[in-house]
Structures are given as C-alpha cells and as structure tokens.
C-alpha cells in the first residue's frame, strides 16, 4: 500500500490534538458511568501517536468527542489549535477518521460509497479510483461493501479518509478482527502515512502492537491519563532492560558477574538475569559474554529482556490501584519538545 503526497500544510501548530480536563459521563437506566474523567491528551504533530488503554478505558469516547459525534460534559478540545466542536467545520477537511469498524452502506459498491463521500465533501470524483488504487482495492471497487472482508473494509475506510488528503488521521482500533497479514498491512499503512508527513493517532487496547509502530503514546485507564510521552521514555519508566543467560553452572556464573560489577539475579528455569551496572546508562551484553568467556564459562543462551508497553501499563494500573482514594494520579512528565520520529517501517 502506498500513500499520497505530503499534505498541504507548511507551517504547523505544535500539537495536532489536545484536550484539557475532558469529561464525559453516560447516563442510562442503570445509572451513571464515567467514561472519560479529566483527560489531558496531547498529540504532537507528525508521526504515529498511540492512544492506548484497555477496553472501556474511554479511548473511543474521546475520539468521538474530538470528532463532534458526542458532546463532552466539560473540558476543552482542540484540533490544530482550533477549539472543537465549535470550529470543527473549519478543520474537518484536515482530519480523516475511522471510528471503530468501517461503516458504509452495505448494498452500495465501494466505489459508490466513496463517490457519495467525495460528492459530500466537494472532492473531485477522479480522486475515488485514485484512493481505491492507493489502498489496493482498485480491482474490487465495483464489489458491494457487504462482500468485503474485514481487512478490505478497513482499507476502504482508509481510502475514504484519503479523499480529503488529511493532515491528521485518527484510527480507532484499526486492527480489530484482522488476521496477522491484515494487521501487518495496517501497521505499514500507518507508518507510511506518518512518513509522508501526516499525523496518525491510533487507538488500541493491544499495547504491544502499537509499540511496534508508534513514536509517542498516551496511556489511559478508566478515562484518566496514566502516562504520555515518547515510547522509549515510557518504556524506560517501565523498568530496566536485562539479559537472561543460561550457563552450565548458574551459581558460578553469577559469582563471576558480581566480581565484574554486575548485579545478577536468579532468573527462571536456572537462568541468570543480568541488569546494567549501577550508574551505567545501558546494559552492554557483549561485556557480559566477555567477562564469562574470560573465565571459560560459555553461554548456551543469551536473551534480551526489554520492558514493553503492556508491562508499563500493568505497572501503572497497579500503582493506581495501590493509590486508590487519591483524586488523581500525579501529572505525567511533559512531552519532549521534539520527539524523535521513527521511519522506514515497523519497529
């Protein structure tokens, strides 16, 4: 799948999306349910921003509020520095969004669905075959939407957003129900869109999946912000990296490592877990193998262990549960001024 040319903007605001103290409560016969509770969201411009949290944490509600589909109880939101929903019509042409599952008219062909969208937003009809081609549906454009697989529906929805040539793309759980090939394809598409200069905001409850493609992330739980920032910074907060080594005699190997200044711990199944030396910024795995080899201890296995977003999230939610009763968790550290951008495929 390819992406179209870089969007038309030249000078950009710092944030593509922001919310401040955003709240939404759903009321039903069964009572009130707080979906979003004082959420501050900041999505820097450019790159892929993961909007993460478990099911029911308020991701879709937040996205719906940003798009004017539902009304917040309180708080403010901006898209490209324009307050929404008040100024949404002014910025909507710069935003493409797919909320939950792609929703088109099932009895119409893909082409017909897109033609109607194009007519509605004043896009030239000639864009329709172009965007269908861009998402790899050029030859299936005359098939009815209802005959499409879930992956094809997602691609059609992406084609719909591309009709506007948007600067910001919002994908809500885009890989739900997709097979591994479909997931891979969507990830590549998101990465490609970001590399073409667009901002991609992708929500997901599968944290490790987004970790592979996101530059920055926001993690929420129960409608509240838990963490935000660059993926590497977030991962660093989740714990230190380590290597797990398997040696003929774990006790001897551990002793040698202690003598070399490491702080080994017993690992699972007779392995030894080695972390960075105290004060050292990173763990040097070659130093571990060198120290052991010098004492003629040769490793049968060496495995890197890095913290992932899921682990970070579990730690954060565990902390929140421990701190239950406090009105809010401590505010997260601010986003770096210029978050490093990833490019050239998935992480």
């Amino acid at each position: 799948m390819t992406t179209s040319a870089a969007p038309r903007h030249a000078r950009a605001p710092e944030l593509a999306v922001s919310t401040t103290d955003l709240r939404k409560t759903y009321r039903s016969r069964r009572g009130r349910r707080v979906a979003v509770e004082g959420l501050d969201l900041r999505v820097p411009r450019g790159g892929v921003h993961g909007f993460l949290g478990p099911n029911g944490s308020g991701k879709t509600t937040t996205i719906r509020m940003l798009l004017g589909l539902i009304r917040p109880d309180s708080g403010t939101m901006t898209l490209f520095d324009q307050p929404v929903p008040e100024r949404l019509p002014a910025v909507v042409d710069r935003v493409g969004a797919i909320v939950e599952q792609p929703k088109f008219f099932p009895a119409f062909t893909a082409r017909r669905n897109l033609e109607l969208l194009a007519a509605g937003i004043g896009a030239p009809k000639e864009r329709v075959p172009q965007v269908l081609e861009e998402v790899g549906l050029g030859e299936r454009g005359r098939d009815r939407f209802r005959s499409y697989s879930l992956g094809m529906k997602q691609r059609l929805a992406i084609a719909g957003t591309l009709l506007k040539d948007p600067e910001l793309l919002i994908f809500d759980e885009p890989t739900n129900g997709l097979d591994p090939a479909g997931i891979h394809e969507i990830r590549q598409t998101m990465r490609g869109l970001a590399d073409a200069g667009r901002t991609v905001l992708v929500s997901s409850h599968i944290l490790n999946e987004v970790q592979q493609v996101a530059d920055t992330v926001t993690i929420i739980g129960r409608g509240r912000l838990l963490a935000e920032g660059d993926v590497d910074d977030i991962l660093a907060r989740g714990g230190t990296e380590a290597v797990r080594v398997r040696a003929p005699d774990p006790a001897v190997a551990a002793q040698v490592l202690v003598e070399a200044g490491f702080a080994p711990e017993p690992g699972p199944e007779g392995t030894v877990l080695v972390r960075a030396r105290p004060g050292a910024p990173r763990l040097d795995s070659s130093a571990v193998t060198r120290v052991l080899a010098q004492r003629e201890i040769y490793l049968a296995e060496l495995v890197w262990q890095r913290p992932d977003l899921e682990e970070v999230f579990l730690n954060l939610t565990a902390e929140e549960h421990l701190g239950a009763g406090a009105p809010h968790s401590a505010p997260p550290p601010p986003l770096p001024q210029s978050a490093p951008r990833r490019s050239g495929g998935e992480r």
């Binding site: 798009l67 004017g68 929903p85 909320v99 792609p102």
Partner: peptide, 9 residues
C-alpha cells in the same frame, strides 16, 4: 457517524 466525520455541520 461516518458521514458526520466528513461533514460535521
């Protein structure tokens, strides 16, 4: 909902 994300007025 899809339509309103394109034409929010």
């Amino acid at each position: 909902a899809n339509w309103l994300t394109f034409v929010p007025r």
